[in-house]
Structures are given as C-alpha cells and as structure tokens.
Amino acid sequence: MRLLVVEDEQILREQLLEQLRERGYSVDGAADGEEGRFMAEEYPYDLAIIDIGLPKMDGIALIRHLRAHGRLFPVLILTARGGWQEKVEGLEAGADDYLVKPFHPEELLARLNALLRRSAGLACPRVEIGPVCLDTATQAVSAHGQGVDLTAYEYKLLEYLMLNQGRVISKTELTEHIYDQDFDRDSNVLEVFVRRLRKKLDPSGQLQPIETLRGRGYRYNSGRAS
C-alpha cells in the first residue's frame, strides 16, 4: 500500500513517515499543498493523510482539487483546532475521516487500516481467501491455520494482491503501490518476491494462488484457491 502524507510540520511529517514505514507502508511526504497536489496527481496512491492548515494551498482546497480531478483514494484529514465546522468542511470536501492533533500513533494506524479496508470493500480487517488468511490490522498471515513468516515487502505484495483478488495487476502497478518514490525499481526483485511468496504460502504447489499471466502481470486467484 502506498500512502501520501501532506504535513507542513517537518518533525511531525518525519515521525509519521517513519511510523508508517515501520508498519510496512510505502510512504511519500509533501511539505505543502502544492507539492501534495503534484505528487497526488503524479503517483497512484492508495490513501492520503492531509493536514488542514497547509501553506500554499490549504488542505480542504487540496482535497477538493483531488476529488474534482478524479482521485478517489481515501483521505484522512488532520486538524489541530478540532472545531466541528472545520471537520464538516473537510468531510464535505471529500475527506473520509478526521483525526485531531495530537493523536496516538495506534489511533492513526487503526483509522488508516479501516479506510484502506473500506476502500477495498472489506467489512473486517481479515481477508480470507481459501486457506490463506491475512489480517490487515495485525499484519499476520496464515495458510492452513499455520502462521506464515513474511518480510515487509512480501507482506506488502501479498496484501495488495489479496485486496485486489481476481484482477490482473501489472508489474508496474505492483511496483508503484508497494515501493515509495525513492526506491530503485527493478522488476526482477518483484519476481523473486513472488517466487518466495509462492513457496511460503504453498510449499506443495497444489494451490498456486498467485498466477503469472505472461506479459500482463499477476493475479491472485480466488477461484482455484477455494
């Protein structure tokens, strides 16, 4: 999952980026509304965290702009004042949830998770496809009831594939959603991750949940898995 954090307070922005990266998200930061707009138009994000009081273009104007230009990913607004009129304006502009500063990091992660799940059309944090079960809240994965130990990138890859089950996902799309902007992209690495994932989830090779479609990408197969 690739996230965008638009926050002008440098320390808070860096704390956020660090916390989110620790939780396995690919995150980009923007220091003002203009930069946030540029990045949101340029890269395919799965969610944005936007502060309301931003320099150059305030958060509400930024959200309006993004919604008017067809960017439909969930948006979480951060507000310092916490007034209801401001919250309502933010939500009416197109935000999906709000958080009043200062907030507890766990609260932020819980809200993010809920928004990402909601946008993937899931009612609960657990995604279960056949014998494979993924918990987006705890980031735990199990197959046939046995816990599977995944690296951060393997988890990101599996989460993206499972949340988009049944859909063909190109290597470019996968790269864009699991790496942040500064990452050196090499599609061979992706193939290595997929191979390792297959081995960890399905050592016997009976399920083959991740299907390779030559020249098109990958698909997480719900049909064959179940």
Binding site: K87, L91, E92, D96, D97, R118, A123
Partner: peptide, 13 residues
Amino acid sequence: RRLCASLEKVYRE
C-alpha cells in the same frame, strides 16, 4: 443535516 452527513461518513462501518 451537514453534521449528520459528515458523521454518517465517519461511522459508515
């Protein structure tokens, strides 16, 4: 109306 619409969004689940 505006408050309810906003809160319905926040508490959608």
